[in-house]
Design a protein around this nucleic acid. Structure first.
Length: 360
DNA sequence: GACTTCTCTTGTCCCGGTTG
DNA sequence: CAACCGGGACAAGAGAAGTC
């Protein structure tokens, strides 16, 4: 890792660099990428990933998709079959679990993931589900997101560089930063914003002129994004991963909804998504208790966001919460919602709304 | 066929970032 | 600078699946 140390303020021991290429944390990074909120490849617990990593079968998320390669050159087994065989032979694994893993990978490779989950899967620090959603809707498409990464990686002024180098790269306006006492730890300090100084991720930060920026993405998140963008190995891994599966634009409707109930969602629904007329538009929706049927909370959250227009599905209730959906055994969240006067609805009522949207 | 292992899910808590 | 909000980590348990 090349970036600065962990700054000592977090309790967690960190390599300076990215998790994916930090041996102690590699498995954790892989687990993060394949987790349900990421690429959602089932059958890959942290323990199982440890097996694969120990056997040097899988080092990056993209490697896992090699299990689908079937480039057998006339004789013998293809690459994917070999990998499948190697996995099957690992202790604790068997034909069944290996085959299940393969089909899980296959499902993801065919269906793809929404841009937000792709971004989440990259494991960028401070970029969790919420920030990933914000970023995804800011850029809309994977290509635009990568463009932003490439652009921001070209920053001539990494935050750690001494001020002399800063001055040399911006000869015309060098006098602006003459006051060296200013604690310009921040990447987007006012001085930087004023002149045509390089600003990374202007779509997110705003450029002070025509671009407003994204609320909820602050300097810390930006700094983390810049570090990611400047790491060639991580970018390469991300682009390799992008080759393995379709990444759906956020402004359009993503294909993942087709899977939920096998229902097709038409293109016209996509245009409805951004309208403010949806039941949950602009609201954050919190779920508590278990939902009827085999509907998982994750699926329900997808419905709330994609079909009903919710802006977020946090895990806790606050006064900013728009609606709390109460399933069976709803606990303290339901109480808190009532205390705060937050609107509540039953899971059944929620499902009716979902059904109605699906039928349109 | 028994045992082990992993998965899947929810609730709670706390840290940290963002915002005004 | 303070309050608020959100996410992540943690814990626990029930259930399912697979291995041997």
């Amino acid at each position: 890792g090349m970036q600065g140390q962990g700054q000592g303020q977090g309790q967690v021991l960190r390599c300076g660099g990215p998790q994916l290429f930090c041996p102690p944390r590699k498995v954790g990074a892989l687990a993060h990428a394949f987790s349900r909120t990421g690429l959602d490849v089932t059958g890959l617990s942290e323990a199982r990933l440890q097996h694969l990593a120990n056997a040097t079968l899988v080092a990056t998320p993209a490697d896992m998709f090699e299990i689908l390669d079937n480039d057998d050159e006339g004789n013998g087994k293809g690459k994917g079959e070999l990998l499948l065989q190697n996995i099957t032979d690992l202790p604790g694994w068997g034909p069944k679990s290996a085959a299940n893993l393969r089909s899980s990978v296959e499902r993801v490779a065919e269906n793809g993931v929404p841009l937000s989950r792709f971004i989440y899967s990259l494991g960028i620090r401070h970029i969790g589900t919420h920030s990933s959603n914000l970023i995804a809707s800011a850029y809309g498409s994977l290509s635009d997101f990568f463009l932003a990464l490439d652009y921001s990686a070209t920053s001539p002024l990494p935050p750690s560089l001494p001020t002399e180098e800063r001055a040399s790269t911006e000869d015309s306006g060098s006098n602006l930063n003459s006051n060296s006492d200013t604690n310009s730890n921040s990447l987007v300090s006012d001085e930087d914003l004023d002149m045509e100084v390089f600003v990374p991720f202007p779509t997110l930060t705003g450029n002070g002129h025509d671009i407003e920026g994204v609320k909820g993405i602050g300097p810390v998140a930006i700094e983390s994004l810049v570090a990611f963008a400047q790491n060639k190995a991580l970018i390469a891994a991300a682009k390799a991963l992008a080759q393995t599966l379709p990444v759906h634009d956020t402004k359009k409707l993503n294909h993942s909804q087709v899977d939920l109930n096998g229902n097709n969602v038409t293109e016209s629904d996509a245009t409805l998504l951004n309208q403010a007329s949806l039941p949950f538009s602009g609201k954050s929706v919190v779920f508590t208790g278990s939902l009827p049927g085999k509907l998982s909370r994750t699926e329900a959250q997808s419905y709330a966001v994609d079909l009903l227009g919710a802006k977020a599905t946090p895990s806790s209730v606050s006064k900013a919460t728009g609606v709390v959906v109460i399933g069976e055994k709803g606990g303290k969240k339901a109480d808190k919602a009532r205390d705060l006067g937050v609107r509540t609805m039953t899971a059944d009522e929620f499902l009716v709304m979902v059904k109605k949207r699906q039928d349109e």
